[in-house]
Design a protein around this nucleic acid. Structure first.
Length: 412
RNA sequence: GCCAGGGUGGGGUAGGUGGUUAUCCUAGGGGACUGUGGAUCCCCCGACCCGGGUUCGAAUCUCGGCCCUGGCCCCA
C-alpha cells in the first residue's frame, strides 16, 4: 500500500460507525436529560491556551505548528481549556450555572497502544458557576448514568484533594508534587523515600497511607481532624449514596495539575490493560488563568474510544431496509416505487449494475430485509411483489400496503 | 523516547535451510441464468511494508526506516 494513514489514526467502516454513533447517542441523551447542551470549539487553538493550563512540558505531547501568519497553534489535546476560554470570552453574562457538553476529537502526539490513539474522541460535560456539594454530586451522577447507558463495566472512584493537601501543606511545592505522584500510583515505598529527610516524615507517611486507605468520611476525619472541607465532603458522599451511585471512596486520586481544587473522580474499565481509565473529572478553577473571574467549575471527560474498545464486538439494531429488484422493462416503475418507500423513511436501494433478476435478489439478501420485485406482471397489475428476505415468504401487495409492512418490520 | 513480538491479495492464511507461474479460505466482479439464483458450478480480480546490502538470483539472509500489536514512560 503506497499511502498509509498517519500513525495512531484509524479508518472507520460503516458497521463500526453505526456502533459508535449508537453509543454516542446514548451518552448524549443521558446528559441532555440533566440539562447539558452541546457546545463546539475550534479543532486548533493558540498554543498558549494549553501551556497556560498545563505547563510547557506538554508541548512535546501535542501536534503544534506555525501557520502562515506566524501564529503558534496546536491541535487540541483536550476540550476543557477551550470550553473555559469560550466561557471567559462569551459566556460571562449567561445565566448561571452553565451546563455544557461536547463530543470532540482530540489529538496527542504519543506512542499508540491499546486504547490510546493520536486522534481520539472525548465526550464531556462542564458545569460552570456552581460551587456546592449538589453541583459536585450532579456531575458524578451524570457520569455514572452515562457510563451505565453506554453499557460498559466500570469501577467508579471518588475522592477529594483537601485531605492530602492539608497533610502536606508544610512541604515545599516540589515535594508536594512528588508526594502526590506517589499517592496516585499508590507507591508507598517511593513515598517513604521522598519523605525520609523531612521532619516527622515517618508520621506523615503513616497518615498519608491511612488516608489513602480510607473507605468512609468518618475514617478520614479521624486522621485529618476537622478540615474546612469536612462538611462538603460529607455532603457529597451523602448525596451520592442517596442517589445509589456505586462508587468507592479514594483519597489517593490526584489528577495531576494544580487547577483541580476539590472533588476528583475517575472510572476504570477492568478489561482494558495499561490504558484502562475511561473517564476522569472533578472540580477546578481555570477561568482566572485565561483572564476571567475565578469561577468554580466541575466537569468530566470520557475517553470515547476506550469505551468502544471496552464494549468489544456488538451489532446494532438497524432499521429495516428495502431493495428494489426489477426486470429491465420495469426500471422506471422501480424508481417510482423506490421514491414511495423513501418518502416513508425507509432506506431503499436500487440496482445500478444492470444485474440479472437473480443476481439482484442475491445482492439484496446481503444489504436489505425486503426485496420489492417488479417485472412485467407487476407493471400490468399495479401491485408489487414483496419478499421477506429473512423468511423467504413473498406475496403481491398494493404499493401502500408493502410500504406499511416494511415500515412495521421490527429489529433485524 | 525505551522494550518485546510482528508486517504475504480487501480480510484470514501456507511457504520461507535463497532457485519455475507464491498456497488455500473468504470477500469483491462476471458467467451458466432476462421471474426468485440467499443455492450450485465455472471464470476473473488481487499480495510478499519501504529502501540499502550480500548474491548469478532475495518474500526468504542482513542493516536501516515506516507501520501494527502489547508493555514502559507519560497521561491534560
Amino acid at each position: 500500500m503506497r499511502l498509509q494513514k498517519p500513525r495512531g489514526t484509524r479508518d472507520f467502516l460503516p458497521d463500526e460507525m453505526e456502533r459508535r454513533r449508537e453509543i454516542e447517542a446514548r451518552m448524549r441523551e443521558t446528559v441532555r436529560r440533566f440539562g447539558y447542551r452541546e457546545v463546539c470549539t475550534p479543532v486548533f487553538e493558540h498554543l498558549d491556551l494549553f501551556t497556560m493550563k498545563s505547563g510547557e512540558g506538554i508541548i512535546e505531547e501535542m501536534y503544534v505548528f506555525v501557520d502562515k501568519g506566524g501564529r503558534h497553534l496546536t491541535l487540541r489535546p483536550e476540550v476543557t481549556a477551550s470550553v473555559v476560554r469560550m466561557f471567559v470570552n462569551e459566556g460571562r453574562n449567561l445565566p448561571k450555572p452553565l451546563r455544557w457538553c461536547y463530543f470532540a476529537d482530540c489529538f496527542r502526539y504519543e506512542r499508540p497502544q491499546k486504547g490510546r490513539y493520536r486522534q481520539f474522541w472525548q465526550f464531556g460535560i462542564e458545569l460552570i458557576g456552581a460551587d456546592t456539594a449538589f453541583a459536585d454530586a450532579e456531575v458524578v451522577v451524570a457520569a455514572d448514568e452515562m457510563l451505565k447507558a453506554a453499557g460498559v463495566t466500570y469501577d467508579l472512584q471518588v475522592g477529594h484533594l483537601a485531605p492530602v493537601k492539608s497533610l502536606i501543606a508544610g512541604l515545599s511545592p516540589d515535594l508536594q508534587r512528588r508526594v502526590m505522584t506517589c499517592l496516585d500510583k499508590r507507591d508507598f515505598g517511593a513515598l517513604e523515600e521522598s519523605l525520609a529527610g523531612e521532619r516527622q516524615g515517618a508520621d506523615l507517611v503513616e497518615s498519608l497511607t491511612a488516608v489513602a486507605g480510607c473507605r468512609s468520611p468518618d475514617d478520614l476525619f479521624a486522621i485529618t481532624g476537622a478540615i474546612p472541607e469536612k462538611d462538603r465532603i460529607t455532603e457529597i458522599c451523602e448525596l451520592l449514596e442517596s442517589q445509589k451511585v456505586p462508587y468507592g471512596l479514594n483519597f489517593a486520586i490526584v489528577r495531576g495539575l494544580d487547577y483541580y481544587t476539590g472533588m476528583v473522580f475517575e472510572a476504570f474499565a477492568p478489561n482494558l490493560g495499561a490504558e484502562n481509565q475511561i473517564l476522569g473529572g472533578g472540580t477546578y478553577r481555570l477561568a482566572h488563568l485565561f483572564g476571567g473571574d475565578d469561577v468554580a467549575s466541575c466537569g468530566f471527560a470520557a475517553g470515547f474510544d476506550r469505551i468502544m474498545v471496552s464494549l468489544g464486538e456488538f451489532t446494532t439494531a438497524g432499521r429495516p431496509g428495502a431493495a428494489i429488484v426489477c426486470t429491465p422493462e420495469a426500471g422506471m416503475r422501480g424508481l417510482e416505487v423506490a421514491a414511495a418507500f423513501r418518502a416513508a423513511g425507509i432506506r431503499t436501494e436500487t440496482d445500478l449494475m444492470g444485474r440479472s433478476l437473480g443476481a439482484q435478489v442475491t445482492h439484496a439478501a446481503k444489504s436489505a430485509d425486503f426485496a420489492v420485485i417488479i417485472g412485467k406482471k407487476e407493471c400490468e397489475s399495479g401491485l408489487v411483489t414483496l419478499k421477506n428476505l429473512h423468511t423467504g415468504e413473498q406475496r403481491g401487495l398494493a404499493l401502500r400496503d408493502a410500504v406499511a409492512e416494511v415500515s412495521g418490520f421490527g429489529d433485524r
